[in-house]
């Protein structure tokens, strides 16, 4: 038996999570209720976040930064007109999660908190250099997405902490894209790739999903690649560095070996979509 609690503020939600030992925050329920139905988790209390106004909505702040409330549903992210240019990748990722009906339910906060290595937001957010806003018994803090995933399904979220929002730097005019290899439509990724070009077209940011506990991002490698996007040797070296960072597993979606094979191919494929090589004589 699970009791459902519906606090109206973040502070109340945290107090309830602290008060009940086996309480869990409930966002869209798309993962948590499925797990409970399969008896994989048996929370005594579910602290529903759906009535907390602070967790809702997508806003653009004065400096252009975008704040996505943790309870923002995938369908709203997928349709959000603010997510242009360098942030378009996030919109694309949102639109590839599951299917239309599940996107009406799942939230960004829930998906980030769940930190499924094969899920779509984390690589997209890593590519966007997002920051997480976190509230907990000790107060509020911000955390770079790059410092978020510790290990397989382990994150920097502490006891009683919840994600309140995801902050994105102001979008810049530069193409970005997300590509996901999955067995069928709506499946989790076998491997995925989030990529954004620099505004001058000379460099890129890239994050690979489903090939390790968290998204793979090699910022030093990206720096080294600047200006050499169309140099096959440089690109191969860059992809090789990502492969070296990877720590994939064998699972029902594919072998570790396949995933390693996919990394350079995904990078090449998304790059050719974003920056088609010009036919120069």
């Amino acid at each position: 038996m699970t009791e459902v609690l519906s606090p109206l503020t973040v502070d109340d939600a945290i107090a309830l999570l602290v008060e009940h030992d086996e309480a869990m925050p409930l966002a869209g329920g798309a993962t948590l209720i499925a797990m409970r139905n399969a008896s994989l988790v048996e929370p005594s209390h579910l602290v529903s976040l759906d009535r907390i106004a602070e967790l809702r909505g997508i806003d653009r702040t004065a400096d252009g930064t975008i704040r996505i409330g943790a309870m923002t549903r995938h369908c709203d992210t997928a349709a959000c007109a603010e997510l242009t240019g360098s942030l378009h990748v996030l919109r694309r990722a949102a639109g590839m999660i599951a299917n239309r009906v599940v996107r009406n339910m799942g939230t960004m906060g829930g998906a980030v908190a769940n930190a499924d290595p094969a899920a779509d937001y984390l690589p997209a957010l890593a590519c966007c250099d997002a920051t997480l806003e976190i509230a907990g018994p000790e107060g509020r803090r911000s955390l770079s997405i790059h410092d978020y995933v510790d290990d397989w399904y382990e994150t920097a979220l502490g006891e009683g902490e919840i994600i309140t929002a995801i902050m994105l730097p102001a979008p810049v005019e530069a193409p970005s894209a997300y590509r996901k290899i999955a067995r069928v439509s709506g499946d989790y990724a076998t491997a995925s790739c989030a990529m954004a070009l620099d505004p001058d077209g000379q460099g890129l940011r890239v994050a690979i999903g489903a090939c390790g506990p968290g998204p793979l991002r090699d910022r030093a490698g990206e720096d080294a690649l600047r200006g050499k996007l169309h140099d096959p040797a440089a690109l191969a070296e860059f992809a090789g560095r990502l492969v070296a960072l990877a720590d994939p597993v064998d699972d029902v979606r594919g072998s570790a070996e396949y995933r390693l094979r996919l990394i350079p191919r995904l990078v090449a494929s998304v790059l050719s979509e974003l920056a088609p090589q010009k036919e120069t004589a």
């Binding site: 399969a38 069928v184 439509s185 709506g186 499946d187 989790y188 029902v252």
Partner: peptide, 24 residues
């Protein structure tokens, strides 16, 4: 494909065992 991990079925759910959707 039903996959066994040793003696145990590794993918006894529609999340892990995939059938074609309308888009496939």
């Amino acid at each position: 494909e039903m996959v066994w991990d040793g003696a145990r079925l590794a993918n006894p759910s529609l999340m892990d065992y995939k059938v074609p959707t309308a888009r496939d």
